[in-house]
Simulated assay, not measured.
Amino acid sequence: MEIDARGLSCPQPVLETKKVIDKKVAGLSVLVDNIAAKENVSRFAKAMQYDVVVNVTDYGWKLDLQKL
């Protein structure tokens, strides 16, 4: 599953990520285009026991989240 949170300001990217994590998914990707969203989504995912891999893209970052 992929969440496109580009253009959204915090806390919206975290809230969108939480909606999906609450469904107990094993993995997902989150697309973000600002540093605050990258940091906040990463921090939230780690707190929810997800491993986070950050990849730089043409538009910002792709955060790959995988349940530990």
Rank of each mutant, 00 (worst) to 15 (best):
G27M: 15
I21K: 04
G27P: 01
R6F: 04
K23M: 15
M48I: 05
P13N: 07
S29L: 00
M48L: 07
V56P: 02
G7C: 08
R6E: 08
A36D: 11
I21T: 12
T57A: 01
A36V: 15
Q12I: 12
G7E: 04
L63E: 06
L31G: 09
A5N: 02
V32L: 00
V14T: 15
S29Q: 14
I21C: 04
A36P: 07
L65W: 00
L8G: 00
V56M: 00
L15M: 14
D22E: 14
V30H: 02
N40W: 08
M1L: 08
A26N: 14
L65E: 06
V32N: 01
V30C: 03
Q66N: 14
R43P: 03
G7H: 04
P11C: 09
K46E: 13
Q66F: 13
S42G: 15
V32G: 08
T17R: 00
A47G: 10
D4C: 03
A5V: 07
G7T: 06
V14F: 12
M48Q: 15
L68R: 14
K23F: 11
G27W: 09
V30W: 10
L28K: 03
V32I: 13
V14A: 05
K38T: 06
Q12P: 00
E39A: 12
K38G: 04
S9M: 13
S9P: 03
I21A: 10
V20K: 00
V32D: 00
A45M: 12
Q66P: 01
P13M: 09
K18R: 12
K62L: 14
R43C: 06
N34Y: 07
A5F: 08
R6K: 06
K62C: 11
K19R: 12
V53Y: 10
E2Y: 05
T57E: 10
L31P: 01
A37F: 07
K23Y: 09
T17L: 13
A45C: 07
D33I: 11
V14S: 04
P13I: 05
D22K: 09
N40G: 01
E2R: 08
A5D: 01
R6I: 09
K67C: 03
V53S: 10
K67V: 13
I35V: 14
T17K: 02
